[in-house]
């Protein structure tokens, strides 16, 4: 699964890492990036599950992906950081550009793509064999980066994920000793520690109580000033609360691939949708 890098790519990667590891304070962070997906089509084996999806995710914005179950939101999200190809039978067409560079081209390795485009999963999954602090730092050691001041990084990331106050006095306990909501925020902190340019979140709050959900939504709003965020959610209120832009996915009839029916500013999609199916879905009158 490790792709052989061309020497030139290896150099740029190394340079990138150096920049990343020397940055600690939020104000020094690089400005966030944009992703442009053009005509993305995804297959599992022979089955086409997503067809010609075009969407741009702008810097500093939160983009929400909504739509009924099974319409390919997760698949689309996973294609954005090359997680889609981890399924052995998966295939993809179209282009996805991160700041103008195609992430599926020879210029980028999957590991580089994934350390620049972080991901938070639906089910919180801290690494059980690591302490809370080690969980936050896991991304650094896993991708071969180093940091001069790991303690400060741990604190900074936990603060940004809204978890610092609750765990500051037990950083050495195992990651599984936290509640579900805390685990999810730990996973967000873990994703932040590698300083991604983009953060993908697949239903990050679906397993959480309202209070944890609110904390995470706040976190998302704060993060989006530095990081481009794409979030899948089934919760219409959540989409309205956190997102600037919204894309509605739909499978028109059974067996069809999923398509983007409508995409635009969140207020427009929710208050004045141009497509009647979008209107039905966001007002809860869907099938």
């Amino acid at each position: 699964m490790t792709t052989v890098q061309s020497p030139q790519t290896a150099e740029t990667t190394a340079a990138n890492r150096q920049v990343v590891s020397s940055e600690i304070l939020p104000e020094e962070l690089h400005p966030s990036s944009r992703i442009d997906a053009t005509d993305v089509t995804c297959w599992f084996g022979k089955r086409k599950v997503l067809e010609r999806c075009t969407l741009s995710m702008e810097p500093g914005e939160v983009t929400a992906l909504i739509g009924p179950s099974g319409c390919g939101k997760s698949t689309f999200l996973r294609s954005l950081n090359r997680m889609h190809e981890l399924v052995p039978v998966a295939a993809i067409a179209g282009t996805i550009e991160l700041d103008g560079v195609d992430i599926y081209s020879e210029e980028m390795s999957p590991t580089e793509v994934r350390s620049r485009i972080g991901m938070v999963f639906q089910k919180p999954n801290p690494f059980p064999a690591m302490s809370i602090a080690d969980n936050v730092l896991a991304g650094l050691s896993l991708s071969g980066m180093s940091n001069e001041d790991p303690k400060a990084l741990v604190e900074q990331c936990l603060r940004r994920a809204g978890l610092w106050a609750e765990v500051s006095d037990r950083l050495n306990e195992g990651g599984m000793s936290l509640s579900g909501g805390q685990q999810q925020r730990l996973c967000i902190a873990r994703a932040l520690a590698v300083h991604p340019d983009v953060l993908l979140m697949d239903e990050p709050c679906s397993a959480l109580d309202p209070i944890s959900t609110r904390v995470i939504e706040q976190t998302i709003r704060e993060l989006c000033e530095e990081i481009t965020i794409v979030i899948v959610t089934h919760n219409m209120q959540q989409a309205q609360r956190v997102s600037d832009k919204c894309a509605f996915f739909l499978v028109e009839s059974i067996g069809d691939p999923g398509r983007i029916v409508e995409a635009g500013p969140t207020t427009q999609v929710f208050e004045n949708p141009s497509d009647p199916r979008t209107y039905d879905y966001v007002t809860g009158q869907f099938g």
Binding site: T2, F121, G139, L142
Partner: peptide, 21 residues
Amino acid sequence: DGLRESALALGAPQWRSVMQV
């Protein structure tokens, strides 16, 4: 499998995901 995916999603090559996670 979520643990493996999380490790890879952090930018880990597979051998590091195996060794460290």
